[in-house]
């Protein structure tokens, strides 16, 4: 079976109890591209992102309807193991959240629990190199990850995710807690990473979406406060000649 898309959703809806937070999302994400999810705050961007690797399993009262396919397997099917899903779809969070351990351990731990049998030192080095962090930390691998700057911590979190070799990396506003220079480095890194990985990033920063992504999904809430994807297309097109009026208003800053 040939899979054209990295991940594919079909009428995916996310509910909290009786309230529907995200409604009927059907998107097909291209492999080895960066897809940005944009939209006003509260429109369910992060909720949707977390649904992609079943992180919302931990939110009490949250349940998902519809289908989400990774390689022809519905991630919300009965037989699916959420731990396996998260191992294949890694995630980088809004605020850097390294483990309170050494830099080395931050990377080695995920590999170890996932049964990595290779040479750990090499994995750590390669992951750090891929995350463009190696040169800065190679002499202090045994020091606490908390000693790093915010931007370095976030790149460490990316390295940690790369180390378990996922198919897809989800990024939830990964640069929102960082200064402009660190932000730029993360964006450069994303361009590097997309050679090997599919990246889906939530951002509230329009310029970031425009500069860094290949595809953009525009989300908006409807009258029932349920978010949905109103337009999904190549980034170029979204930012130059969007087909939806609301998208145009939003990307040109005329929104609200």
């Amino acid at each position: 079976m040939e899979n054209k898309y990295a991940i594919e959703s079909n009428n995916l809806s996310i509910h909290y109890g009786s309230y529907t937070a995200v409604k009927n999302v059907s998107v097909k994400i291209q492999p080895q591209k960066i897809t940005a999810i944009i939209g006003p705050s509260g429109c369910g961007k992060s909720t949707l992102l977390r649904a992609l690797n079943r992180m919302n399993d931990f939110v009490p009262g949250c349940h998902v309807t519809g289908e989400l396919f990774l390689q022809g397997q519905n991630l919300y099917g009965n037989q699916i193991d959420p731990v396996e899903v998260r191992r294949k779809i890694g995630m980088v969070f809004q605020k850097p959240n390294p483990f309170p351990k050494s830099i080395y351990e931050n990377i080695a731990w995920g590999a170890r629990i996932n049964g990595f049998k290779g040479k750990m030192d090499e994995l750590v080095e390669q992951s750090l190199r891929s995350a463009a962090l190696w040169d800065e930390v190679k002499d202090k691998l045994q020091e606490s990850a908390y000693a790093l700057s915010g931007g370095q911590q976030q790149r460490l979190c990316i390295a940690r995710t790369i180390a378990i070799q996922p198919e897809i990396i989800l990024m939830d506003e990964p640069a929102s807690a960082l200064d402009p220079i660190s932000t730029l480095r993360i964006e450069e890194l994303m361009q590097e990473l997309k050679k090997n990985y599919t990246i889906i990033i939530v951002t509230h920063n329009m310029q970031q979406a425009a500069r860094a992504s290949d595809f953009t999904a525009m989300m908006m809430i409807d009258d029932n406060r349920a978010g949905g994807v109103i337009e999904f297309d190549e980034t170029k097109k979204i930012f130059t000649r969007p087909s939806d009026k609301r998208t145009e208003d939003y990307v040109t800053g005329r929104f609200g």
Binding site: M55, V83, R86, M91, P100, N114, C157
Partner: peptide
């Protein structure tokens, strides 16, 4: 955030 970080790298 610590739990999520662990789940994010595929921890049970």
């Amino acid at each position: 955030s610590l739990r999520q970080a662990a789940y994010g790298v595929g921890a049970t």
